[in-house]
Simulated scan of single mutants.
Amino acid sequence: MEAFHFLRPLWLLTLPLILLTWWLVRRQGERPPRGPAFLAPHLRDALIIERDRTRCPRGVDGVVLVMLCLAVAAAGPTWSQQQSPWFREAAPLVVAIEVSDSMRSNELLPTRLDRARYEVLDLVKARTGSRTALIAYAGTAHIVLPPTNDVRVLQTFLESLDPAIMPVPGARAAAVLPVARQLLREGGSRSTLLFVNDGFDSTAVAALAGFVNEPGTPGVVSLVVGRDEGGVALLPDGSPVLAPGGGPLDTRIDPGPLRDAEREAAVPVLRARADDGDTRALLRHIASQQLAANDPDAHWKDQAWLILWPALLLALSWFRRGWTMRW
């Protein structure tokens, strides 16, 4: 409601004139007919039909309601903007995908990393014509692909990602932020940074909170791939991934930092799903981020057509027999 206004407010000046016309016509029509003068008053009252005409609806009421609707529609009510295609094209999506040993976990077949690739490709294909950049991170973050709208090139680079090629092991999501800031120097607040990972740690939550509070920063969304109970992380040869202290790597997801990211850093955290519900939710978040930005070429959408429908329904009453009006 804060954005509600009229594109052509001068048309609202006709509302008092319409109401004044209605009052004058109504007042004139409420005068009871006098009848022949030779009749006695008690007989004349008995012969007059519809003596109390003040409460029954009349033709002028329907005409005035239609005129009021048309006047409001002509004023151009609006409450949302239509962004220009250039604005959407100039606002890229930066995908930061975690390429760590925990992403080898197999509770989501074939692995979390493979499922993350599928999720990214589904999202990119749904954003036809928009640009997407790719960042891979483990203990460090690196630009894999600058913003591009070539889906096949992006797919090739996604398929080449493997924890074995990352120079430093780990899962430091905070390392992504300066790299993303470098990529989004031009996009600014119109862009979106999407984390595709299996969780955050406490240091990442603090860094995210500081990042989103900076002016001109992009919106941040997280898509968590994996179940809280985790699975078994396996190497390509089928042997389990070992933790630094020995034993199988713990791939459980701690939901605590995810809740902290939503509460302290205002980062929406979504879970990967088997259907396309997560993709549709991501598209809504990306669209809302672009709408929240200030597009100098955006146009307010004229919503007058919504008011024309009740005006047309009221106009149908004129086809009712006897429902006519004489000015």
Rank of each mutant, 00 (worst) to 15 (best):
T156E: 13
V168W: 04
L145P: 03
P146R: 13
L154Y: 06
A164L: 12
R152G: 07
D162H: 14
T148R: 06
T140M: 11
T132C: 11
L134A: 04
Y137V: 08
K125Q: 11
T156W: 04
L134H: 07
T128Y: 01
R131K: 14
L145W: 05
V153F: 06
A138C: 05
D150F: 08
V151P: 01
M166C: 08
T128L: 10
L161T: 09
V176W: 10
T140I: 13
P167L: 11
A138I: 11
I143T: 15
I165G: 04
R152S: 14
I135H: 06
F157N: 12
P146H: 13
P163T: 05
R131H: 11
M166L: 14
P146K: 09
N149Q: 13
P147H: 10
V176R: 04
D162R: 12
V176G: 03
V144M: 14
P147S: 11
L154G: 07
A171L: 11
I143H: 05
V124C: 03
T156S: 14
P163M: 10
A173P: 09
V151I: 15
K125L: 06
Y137R: 07
L161C: 10
R152L: 12
S160R: 15
A126Y: 00
D162Y: 04
G139V: 09
H142P: 00
F157I: 03
F157R: 13
S130T: 01
A141P: 11
A141Y: 08
V144E: 15
L158D: 09
